[in-house]
Every structure is written in C-alpha cells, then in structure tokens.
Design a protein around this nucleic acid. Sequence first.
DNA 1: CGGAACATTGAGAGGGATCAATGGACGTGG
DNA 2: CCACGTCCATTGATCCCTCTCAATGTTCCG
Lengths: 242, 242
Amino acid sequence: MNNQKNRVACINCNLRKLCLPSGLGSQDLAHIDEVIVVRRRLKRCETLFCTGDDFAMLYAIRRGFFKTSTALENGREQVTGFQMPGEILGLDGILDDHHTCTAVALQDAEVCFLPLDRIRALSPLVNGLQHHFHKIMSGEIVQEQGVMLMLGSMQSEERLAAFLVNLVGRLHTRGFSRTEVILQMTREEIGSYLGMKIETVSRIFTRLMEQGVVKVNQRHIHILDQVALIRRASQFEGARAS
Amino acid sequence: MNNQKNRVACINCNLRKLCLPSGLGSQDLAHIDEVIVVRRRLKRCETLFCTGDDFAMLYAIRRGFFKTSTALENGREQVTGFQMPGEILGLDGILDDHHTCTAVALQDAEVCFLPLDRIRALSPLVNGLQHHFHKIMSGEIVQEQGVMLMLGSMQSEERLAAFLVNLVGRLHTRGFSRTEVILQMTREEIGSYLGMKIETVSRIFTRLMEQGVVKVNQRHIHILDQVALIRRASQFEGARAS
DNA sequence: CGGAACATTGAGAGGGATCAATGGACGTGG
DNA sequence: CCACGTCCATTGATCCCTCTCAATGTTCCG
C-alpha cells in the first residue's frame, strides 16, 4: 500500500523521533509506514484544511511551518497555534468529524496524510502506538493550557518573551540554533496568537531590543541574553516593583 | 473485578450518555464497567490530584463540580477549567506521566477511577470505545481552543457572557435549567479563569444586571434575557462541551 | 519607479488593574 | 439570640497598559 512516489519511509525520516513513530522500536517502525497513505506538498499560504471541512485524517508535518486559526463571526481571525515539522495537525476534527480550525502553510511545506482509522487499525499490532498517540493528544492539551495561562495572566512583554522562548525551544529540539530564529509569521499573526495588536508586538520587540535582550531585524531574531528573556517570560516578579 | 460497594453500574448511571460510555450499545455497556476500579467520594475543597503527581488514571465525575488550575512560579494560581458530572479529568497527565494541573472539588463530589491501561485493554474488545475516547480528548482540545479565543480576543463583558452561556449550555445538557444557575465557584475563580480581576467580574455582573440581562444574587444567577446574553458572547458559539 | 504588504513610531483614549473602603452572608462561641 | 470574625462581594477613585488612529518607513516585486 506504500504507493507514493516521493515517499521517504518513516524509518528514514529524520523527524521520526518527534513525530508519530516516536518511541517505537525499529521493528514497529516498518509497520508504521502503512499509516501514511499519501504525502503532499503545499505552497506557502496554501490551506491544508478549513474550518467546517469534513474531518478526513490527521496530518504530520514533514517540512515547513503552519498556523492554525479560527474565524470569529465578525470576520476577524484568531491564530490558535504555530506548528512545525514533526507535529500533528487535525486533532480538533476528531470530536465531531468536522474541523474547527483552519490550517495554512506559512512556507512551502510537505505533510504526511495519516487516516485515523489506519492508526486505529494498526494500534493493536504495533506496540506502543496507541499509547504514543494518546500522548500526542495529551501534549496538545497541555500545550494549549500553557497558552491559556499566557493569555490569561501575563502582560504583553511576558507573552512575547514566552512565545520566543517556546519557539526557540521547539526549534532547538529539531536541531536549530537556540539563539537565532527567522520568524515565519507576520507581526499580525504573532499578535493574534498572543492576544495583542500588531503595534504592541512591534513596540515590545523594540523595547526588548533597547534592553539588549534580543536583536531584531525584520523577521530575523537574534537572542542576545537568553537568561533575561527567560526571566521575562516567567511571570512578573518585580514588574511593578515600586 | 467489580469490587466496589457503592457501585452503580455504568448501564444504570444517568450520565452514561455524556460520559465515557457515550455512544456504546447496551451490550458493550456491560463491558465498560470493567474499566472502573473504584469510585471515590470527595469533600468540598478536597484535591483529586495535584500538579506534579504521578499520573495514575483518569477520573470521570459522577457528582459535583471541579476546577482545574495550574500554579504559576510566583505562587499564584490560574484556573484552567471548570468540570461537571460526566466530564473526564486527568487527560493532561498522559503526556509524560505527571499531572500538569491540580483538580479540586468545588462541592462534595464523587468520581469514578478509570485506569488508562484498562481503557486501552478494553478498546479492542468494546466496539467504539477507542473512537469515543479519542473524541473525548479531541473535545478537550476544541474546548481549550475556545478558551484561547475568549482570552485572546474578547473583552471582559463578552468573556463573562460567554462563560455564562457555556455554563448553562452544559448544565442544560445535564437536565438543568437554561436560565437558572447557582455558581459553584467564587468571583475570584471566575476571574482567574477568564483572565480578569475579581473587581472586574463583580462590576460586569452589576452592569449586566443594570442592563436587565441577568439577575444576580450572590452565587445565584437568573438569566432574564438569553438572547441578549448570547449576543454579548457572540464570538463564542463553539466550545459547547460534551 | 510605484504600489502593495508589512513594520515602526507617535499621540491620545479607554478598558481593566490597583488601591482602598464598605457591605453582606455565614459560622462559631458566648 | 446576638456579637464577632472570616470569607466573599461590591463599589469608588485613580493609574497605567494596551488599543486606536494616524503617519512614516522598509522591503519586495511587477
């Protein structure tokens, strides 16, 4: 059934430690390939799925950044997350077989299609697959709780700092620098995600730069003082010190 | 193994349509009972599990309200959710076998213990169990996305209205009034959940009362104008939990 | 070159936070 | 049954963080 041309087997994929096969033995790794039916390339700005779409399957990101967003009635959109290679998209659609958010590629991307029924069918056969799939969903829940925390109890500077810390952390797991990031999203998307306006995002980047914490050049962020950034991200200790 | 004294079989539980057994046939309903190892009663303010606790199992609420909260470094706490009978607690612990939040009973309560490995073991045997379990986790993700939306893009009045709409909606599903609520949480807990201060919560209750939308008497809320309330919460249609 | 998309910066306004005081509700003990 | 303390909620006055409105700057590209 492995019928795709441009296929790279999970076992040869450099993301296997982060993605669905995480934690599987090499024997099971061979089986897990059967979960993937197709791999698809997307151009920048292309939509993977849309709010309201029938839920067909899950998607593992193999290359490229994504954003998910939900549309508000008045036309505005709120970004609910940024996803990177190795992460799974579409978990929201399981609830009632319709997607509740829209996933858009922020750069040219490539995703593996993972029909949920195949994951289910393979679960009894592949040791640890079910467990790991549950972990992926649980991780999504925990991650979102972190965002709720951020939105509910932090000020703008802390949110942006926390956002950067989270971003470089995830990138570092994928072998990238801990101090250099090239943002794949606009200021507006960052603001939407963090619950603040684009002007505020911009001002806080400027402020962090003035304080020598980061160096900002358009989308290119250089973290000069990692400790200071983390301190700003972990709640206001002396924020209002009189 | 159904060894508890004060057991009510799932098949006789009035919450079965909302809880884990949702959607199962009567034949499978008998089996699902094997998932439950214990049922435990908790007093008001008692803790079910704590941030950092080893993840042991999931918990289905049979009676009573709960709140979940995460502690911030500086000692404050942020409420991440309010749970009612039929809902499942503990899904956050699956990720790395430790709970990331604390669950506390807001009133005298009763929970069914659901070891995850039993759910897994039963999954291949009980038709639809695995699917429904996935739906429960997906529902948690969708619910939290709704909260993110609320925190990120709504003002205080909208948030409180959305909170009330969500609450009465879930209560209505459980057979309660659509217009009368007795809040089980303090203004402070509401504020923590909605990302606002207790004074603001209070002021907005007053404002909604002045506008004739609700009648507020301590914890007792009477919704006078449901349409007006929903209109104030309009950006928050979704997130109607199970 | 000129337009579009994106980002920065400034001035002013407003929503919610903070600080502070008062008002109930409830339980305990005299 | 009342006095009293505690917990919780309400209300007012003031401050400040972030939004809004507006103008300018920068990059990219046809």
